[in-house]
């Protein structure tokens, strides 16, 4: 199977005043095409640093990082921008949608920075991405007219629009309630079965169970890297008690 990510003896150090902080102390792993990997760890474990490096937002102090067989370590700032634009789809905890801008235009955003895509193609690709996340009927809505789950779906559509080699999610369910989290995870699972490679950074174990491999970090080192039995998010969603507050209220009223 094709290797999407290969990191080798990755180290990242920060100089804070006179102190040197070792965020990553030499970690190595590979992620193959079609995997759904969660990266776990408490705060201070180095998972944010790893995420920034995997997302080509930061560069390692030493070690090698190959994304889709390209060595990222030696690339310039502008080349990293292009890599992010063509190969990575980001999903953030707080959605980061542009306010007062329609869902469709939000999804089009990455393509505006890709000069090989024409205006017509851009629109079509954005519409297709919104269809994939089940929001084809909300294209003209602005973020304020959408629920949190819908906003995160728009953000996922934006991550998908450039057909990246991997999706990189940073606490993507952190701002959502359990039900909506499960809905989002089932969307990720659906995308994964269609062949998307997904790297999911989280600190919640009950979200990590929906992935098929867990990499656990502590103090800048990998302490666990194992395949897990994947739970179905749809099943989890069905097992949730249906008595939402709203329905309880309706019942009491009756």
């Amino acid at each position: 199977m094709k290797t999407i990510i290969k990191v080798d003896k990755l180290r990242r150090e920060f100089i804070m005043g006179i102190e040197i902080v070792y965020a990553l102390r030499g970690i190595s792993f590979e992620i193959h095409e079609g995997e759904f990997v969660s990266i776990m760890g408490t705060s201070g474990s180095g998972k944010s640093t790893l995420l920034n490096i995997l997302g080509c937002l930061d560069k390692p102090t030493s070690g090698e990082y190959y994304l889709d067989n390209i060595s990222v370590s030696g690339l310039s700032k502008n080349e990293l921008s292009t890599i992010r634009n063509r190969k990575i789809g980001f999903v953030f905890q707080s959605y980061n949608l542009l306010p007062r801008t329609s869902a469709l235009e939000n999804v089009e955003l990455p393509l505006l920075y890709n000069h090989t895509v024409s205006g017509k193609e851009r629109r079509e690709m954005a519409m297709h991405a919104l269809e994939l996340v089940g929001l084809s009927d909300r294209m003209g809505h602005t973020p304020s007219q959408l629920s949190g789950g819908q906003q995160q779906r728009v953000a996922i559509a934006r991550a998908l629009v450039n057909d990246p080699v991997m999706l990189l999610a940073d606490e993507a369910t952190g701002n959502l309630d359990t039900r909506t989290s499960y809905e989002i995870m089932s969307l990720f699972q659906e995308l994964n079965t269609k062949g998307k490679t997904i790297v999911f950074v989280t600190h919640e174990p009950d979200i990590a169970v929906f992935t098929n491999r867990i990499i656990k970090l502590r103090d800048g080192l990998i302490i666990k890297d194992e395949a897990v039995k994947t739970m179905s998010a749809i099943a989890a969603l069905e097992s949730l008690p249906v008595n939402d507050d709203y329905e309880i209220m309706v019942e009491t009223l009756n």
Partner: peptide, 16 residues
């Protein structure tokens, strides 16, 4: 600021 960060994350260069 966050919009700028997002634009950079999705591929905007400093020059853009």
């Amino acid at each position: 600021t966050r919009e700028i960060g997002l634009r950079m994350a999705v591929g905007a260069r400093n020059n853009d």
